[in-house]
C-alpha cells in the first residue's frame, strides 16, 4: 500500500497585527467571527447538507456565514465536506494555501475526520482524516452531520476566535466545562507562525 500521507502538509503564517492592542484585537476578532466567508468546497454527501444549511430553513445567514465564495482567495473558512481522496489531496492543500490568513478549517463529517466508512483494511484511495493535510479547528461528526451540526461547528469556531460562546445552547445541553482548555483553544495571538499539525 502507498504511504498514508504522500504530501507535505500545508504551512501558513499569520502576519503580526499592525496595531497590537488588546481592545482593537477584540473588536477585530469579533468582526471576523461574525462574518466568516466559507468556501464553496463540496466533496461528497456532506456538501448537500452544507447547501441545506445555507438555505432558507437553517439559514446560516443568521450567524453571518452565508457568503459562500467559490474562490479560496476570498474566503476564510474552509469546510471540508466529504471524503478526501489521494488524488484530491494536493488540491486540498493548494486551496488551503491560497486562502488568506487568518483562516479556519472545519472537518465536516466522518470522512473528513478519519476516513469514516471508507476506512477499511487494505483501502487504497483515501486520506484517513483531512487533519493530515491541513490544520483542523473544529471536527463535526456525522455521516453526514445534520445542518444543525454544521451550525454548532460554526459556533465553536466563533468561540475559538473570540473566546466566548455567542449563541444559547439548545435545551438540555450543559455548557462545556470552562477549564484550562478554553485558554488553549483560543487562536494563538497574531504574530506566532502557525504550522500544520503534522509537524508538531
Amino acid at each position: 500500500m502507498a504511504p498514508q500521507n504522500p504530501l507535505t502538509p500545508a504551512v501558513t503564517t499569520v502576519d503580526s497585527a499592525m496595531i497590537a492592542s488588546a481592545p482593537v484585537q477584540k473588536v477585530v476578532d469579533l468582526c471576523r467571527a461574525m462574518s466568516l466567508w466559507p468556501m464553496t468546497f463540496g466533496l461528497a454527501c456532506c456538501a448537500i447538507e452544507m447547501m441545506a444549511a445555507g438555505m432558507a430553513r437553517f439559514d446560516m445567514a443568521r450567524f453571518g456565514a452565508e457568503v459562500f465564495r467559490p474562490s479560496p482567495r476570498q474566503s476564510d473558512l474552509m469546510i471540508v465536506a466529504g471524503t478526501v481522496s489521494k488524488k484530491m489531496a494536493p488540491a486540498v492543500v493548494r486551496l488551503y494555501e491560497q486562502m488568506p490568513a487568518p483562516k479556519w478549517v472545519m472537518a465536516l463529517g466522518n470522512c473528513a475526520i478519519s476516513g469514516g466508512p471508507f476506512k477499511f483494511k487494505g483501502q487504497y484511495g483515501i486520506i484517513e482524516g483531512v487533519d493530515q493535510l491541513v490544520p483542523v479547528d473544529v471536527y463535526v461528526p456525522g455521516c453526514p452531520p445534520r445542518p444543525e451540526g454544521l451550525l454548532e461547528g460554526l459556533f465553536q469556531i466563533q468561540e475559538k476566535i473570540t473566546g466566548r460562546r455567542w449563541w444559547p445552547l439548545p435545551e438540555g445541553f450543559e455548557p462545556s466545562p470552562a477549564g484550562p482548555d478554553s485558554a488553549e483553544v483560543r487562536k494563538p495571538a497574531s504574530g506566532e507562525p502557525e504550522t500544520g499539525k503534522e509537524g508538531s
Binding site: 481522496s85 484530491m88 484511495g125
Partner: peptide, 15 residues
C-alpha cells in the same frame, strides 16, 4: 475523473 473515487467495488469484496 477519480477525485472522489471511494473504492465501493473493493469494499463489496471485503464486507
Amino acid at each position: 475523473l477519480g477525485y472522489i473515487h471511494r473504492m465501493h467495488e473493493k469494499m463489496g469484496e471485503v464486507k
